[in-house]
């Protein structure tokens, strides 16, 4: 593994080749907000809150730092007007689905996001995939998965597996940044325990 050098917020840092910008920044003590990240899981790039601006070869653009790998000579900015505006918009969109989510409200206060900016469609699920990925990657149970797509995408427990496994596990419950998962599970359990 070779080492690459890059600059984050004006600070010269070194990182292993293949590392992500996010982990490199955190190792250097620079905080970047995340919602869908979990230490035991592969990065997902779902919530997009970790956007940063990268500059290389004279151009700059916004990338998702949890899945963007470092490169030699990269110049990264983790906080400026453009990034803040983007995060504020992302938060407002997420808040339309989960207006009372504590982690979202905390970030909303920091970025000045208005939770009533968009019409509320309280599905309580922000598609962070933490429950789905935890169940698949850590537990290997695949008791919960995504169904459908786009505006109709939602999480769904597989009754056959959920009925057997979930009662003794429920480890995904506290991962949820909203309260949706619990409600969804209780619902399916009600269906299957007839």
């Amino acid at each position: 593994m070779s080492e690459v050098r890059l600059q984050i917020d004006g600070k010269e840092v070194r990182a292993e080749e293949g590392a992500t910008i996010l982990e490199t920044a955190r190792a250097a003590g620079i905080e970047i907000p995340t919602l869908c990240l979990h230490e035991a899981l592969e990065p997902f790039g779902g919530c997009r809150l970790c956007v940063v601006e990268v500059e290389a070869g004279g151009w700059s653009r916004l990338v998702v730092s949890c899945v963007y790998t470092v490169a030699e000579g990269l110049v990264v900015r983790t906080r400026n007007k453009k990034i803040d505006r983007t995060r504020k918009m992302l938060l407002e969109l997420l808040l339309a689905h989960a207006p009372d989510s504590p982690p979202l409200q905390e970030l909303a206060a920091e970025y000045g996001a208005d939770r009533d900016r968009f019409g509320q469609e309280t599905s309580f699920c922000v598609h962070c995939g933490l429950c789905v990925r935890y169940c698949a990657e850590v537990k290997g149970l695949h008791a919960v998965g995504f169904i459908d797509r786009g505006i109709r995408k939602e999480i769904s427990f597989l009754p056959e597996i959920a009925a057997k496994e979930c009662r003794d596990c429920m480890e995904c419950f506290p991962l949820c940044p909203t309260s949706y998962l619990q409600a969804a599970f209780v619902l399916v359990e009600a269906f299957t325990s007839r």
Partner: peptide, 12 residues
């Protein structure tokens, strides 16, 4: 393949 994935793909 996990049934959850089959469900995801067939509904996607």
């Amino acid at each position: 393949v996990p049934p959850a994935l089959v469900q995801h793909i067939t509904t996607f």
